[in-house]
Amino acid sequence: MNPAWMRQLTGVIALEWKKTFLSRRGWWVYLLALGPVVLTFLHSLIRARNQGGHSLFQDTQIFAGMFELYFLRLGIFFGCLGIFSNLFRGEMLEKTLHYYFLTPMRRELLVVGKYLSGLIVALVLFVASTGLSFWLIGRHQGAAWSEFLQHGAGLSQMIWYMVVAALACVGYGAVFLVAGLFIRNPLIPAAVVMVWENLNPFLPSLLKKFSVIFYLKSLCPVQINVPPPLNVLVTDTDPASAWIAVPGLLVVAMLVLAYAAISARRVEISYGE
């Protein structure tokens, strides 16, 4: 890569990640990431005092449910919506985007730089939240939990959950960056994506594959079934294997980002509209 491009890219990332991390507008994203950590910490604390409750197996099942229903469907989804759609739209609102557009820098670099800065923030918040929550949920088991993490399936499960959280940030991040760049109200595509992603278990096998959540769920180490009575509507589909799901998600995110980068060349800004 051209050294000047590299310098510009690191410059954009350095500027943006501070703005995104320390944004007053983004306080609720911290809450989304912090919520499960507080919850699992309290769980550990209460169980340790009461000396009883869930078994090790139950704790991993509970985390699997929380990861799929809270992290994937809500926390990371809304968190990425807040972080990535704000990268361009926030600058438009503050009427500062033209400063970037006036610099002698390729627009593609600006898009990639902003995406990477948003991704750093999302990864730090949600991957760390996932790892910490998993680590905390079974702390009350004491030595059994440490044994499970060090010599059992625990560490592998934790790493897979963190990988899935990271891939969710990559996928949803690319989608919401494009939404923030081209659509004045990113809420409309967000609502459409949310409905589509939540309908996923009930869609025919072919349509299931046109969603992010299908590949993310396939990678989860513990599968959670839809509870009754909705389970009768679920269509059974074989999960995608890891060697398809991981590169597939990355390629789709890259394609979406490439489209945004190329389209950004022609973007003109008029704050008055």
Binding site: P36, T40, H43, M66, L69, Y70
Partner: peptide, 15 residues
């Protein structure tokens, strides 16, 4: 939605 999801998580985790 997040409120309901987080509420369900509290119910499950804390019984």
């Amino acid at each position: 939605f997040v409120g309901s999801g987080f509420g369900a998580a509290i119910n499950t985790v804390q019984e």
